[in-house]
């Protein structure tokens, strides 16, 4: 059952990254869109994510519930030492979720819309930035459980080059996912070109920030390069990710749009796999090189057993229903 639970945890994180990430990305794209095109971007985006957007964000809840039920020590270590970035991320989630719904359901359309838009685009940037910072901090080795002063316990745990680079990298990836997704959503040739431009821009940003992550990892002694390049799985994942990127741009030039999503999703999955595979089952790297692994932090047997059952039962109920939701609204657009 441990493995079932861990699989769901990984799946939750991955799907949140892909679906929630594309969702954040849509806001990031809106942020980097010139004022005159924003209205159109917003409309395409709303049609694309409107019906599924609540569901996209459930994956975060699934992941966090698995953590606090099954791996309480990991959950509480993160809660204590990454309190501040978690808080900022939560404020981002609150602001973003409410602004998105408010701007659609405000019966009167006046300058309040501008307020909602502003909140939406900025929180779309801040939330994945801090999600990335949190993810980076977990493996950065800056969490210091022995720290006695406020700054080293609660600030330097996340405010370091590595974590911030991972945060920016996450933002670029989200933007990239969204741009690729939106290319397939629009019928308008002009818009399509714009989204392709955005995808290029985000792709370059992702490569740059990715390089920054590696540089920071050397500077701060995160064995990232070892995980990625010295491990056969990590290495092949990176190669596959690069190949799929080349294929993606080739197909894009050929004018294929729907298949791109699969490739972009695959690519991001490979990146996550490359980073995490060699690190697994370790989860948190603490200052001084100690680690907290999923197996050492796992909850009591009966808990894991019932959690695994609940997840299996849940997925039997959720997945077909969710699949039908995606299918139904996809199908309607094509008509």
């Amino acid at each position: 059952m441990e493995y079932v639970v861990i699989t769901f945890l990984c799946l939750g994180i991955l799907l949140y990254f892909l679906l929630g990430g594309a969702d954040f990305g849509a806001g990031i794209i809106e942020l980097f869109t010139s004022a005159k095109n924003r209205g159109k971007t917003r409309k395409t985006m709303y049609q694309a994510i409107g019906p599924v957007w609540e569901a996209n964000h459930m994956w975060l809840i699934i992941a966090i519930v698995i953590l606090f039920v099954g791996f309480p020590h990991i959950y509480t270590t993160m809660s204590v030492y990454l309190h501040i970035p978690l808080l900022i991320m939560l404020i981002g989630i609150i602001a973003r979720g409410t602004a998105f719904v408010f701007r659609h359901y405000d019966a009167v359309h006046d300058n309040m819309q501008e307020v909602y838009n502003k909140i939406f685009v900025y929180s779309s940037f801040i939330t994945p930035l801090f999600l990335g910072i949190i993810a980076g901090s977990v493996i950065s080795g800056h969490i210091d459980t022995q720290a006695t002063d406020f700054v080293s316990a609660y600030i330097y745990s996340w405010l370091n080059w590595f974590s911030v680079s991972v945060g920016l990298f996450t933002v670029a990836l989200c933007g990239f996912l969204a741009a690729i997704y939106l290319i397939g959503e629009t019928k308008d040739e002009h818009d399509k070109k714009r989204f392709i431009k955005k995808a290029e821009f985000m792709n370059i940003a992702a490569v740059l920030f990715g390089a920054m992550v590696f540089i920071a990892s050397f500077k701060e002694n995160v064995p990232l390069a070892d995980w990625v390049f010295k491990n056969p799985i990590g290495l092949s994942a990176v190669i596959l990710a690069s190949l799929s990127l080349i294929l993606l741009w080739y197909l894009l030039l050929k004018g294929k749009t729907k298949i791109l999503r699969v490739l972009a999703g695959f690519q991001v999955t490979m990146i996550l796999l490359a980073i995490s595979y060699a690190h697994f089952p370790n989860f948190i790297r603490l200052k001084g090189g100690d680690t907290i692994s999923l197996f050492s932090a796992v909850g009591p047997e009966k808990t894991i057993y019932s959690l695994g059952l609940a997840l299996l039962l849940g997925s039997v109920l959720i997945l077909p229903f969710l699949g039908y939701l995606f299918y139904k609204f996809q199908q309607k657009e094509e008509e």
Partner: peptide, 22 residues
């Protein structure tokens, strides 16, 4: 609290996650 209580009273939360998702 969560460190100790999480594994004990987490069951309704994991089911709630499912219900909420649906």
């Amino acid at each position: 609290f969560m460190e100790h209580a999480g594994p004990i009273f987490g069951m309704p939360f994991s089911l709630e996650g499912t219900a909420f998702f649906i």
